[in-house]
Amino acid sequence: MSISYSSVTKKIWMSLMGFFLMTFLIVHLSINLLLVISPTTDLFNEASHFMGTNPFIQAFQWILFAGFIVHIIIGVVLQIENWMARPKGYRVKAGSEDSFFSKYMIHTGVIIFIFLIIHFVNFFLVAKGVIGEIPETMVDGKPMDDMGSVVIALFQLPYYMVGYLVALLILGFHLDHGFQSAFQSLGLNHPTYTPFIKGFGHFFAVIIAAAFMIIPLFIYFSK
């Protein structure tokens, strides 16, 4: 990869996949929030039924996996190259930076990756019927998998809930740098809009992380 693609090309792919994964987060979050805004799990079950059966979503799922894989592989390659570019470090560490979390993208990225695997096993593979059992439920007279109850059962385990909160907080850190960085890597810089993009990036990171975190807290304390 490092041989055939230039640093700028890799950064461009990194940001395109970053934007793609951010839109995925928004879709995912909107569905999760159905568990909070609706008194029953019916809406959520209907949405997950749609996501699990719609042929377009089924095909898109593979593009999403590819997006994750490209983002992760390029991210690791870039990081290794960056470590190699300074074989001997400084005694007094440099402290100047403008985007604090840029220093920890690999660390937050690895934690998010581990979370992703756990998440994949606990929800995705369960929803696909690969592992575990899902109770059945009736929504509008149609039998459906009760994914809502799977989520609620897991979020009632304190260690699981806390682990989830920590992972999502770290996702927020990752997004805090990633949002504005993706614009810069694509060369989207403008005297008027860039300050807004930077500000909105912090806001976006906080909102996404906070909204995801509300769900387990809500379930833990209300169900």
Binding site: S7, K11, L78, M84, A85, R86, D98, S99, Q180
Partner: peptide, 20 residues
Amino acid sequence: VAKMDELGFGNCTNTYACEA
């Protein structure tokens, strides 16, 4: 850019320490 990569400089992570 190709020469910069070939010489072994790292990749930009938009940290902006350079500007500072």
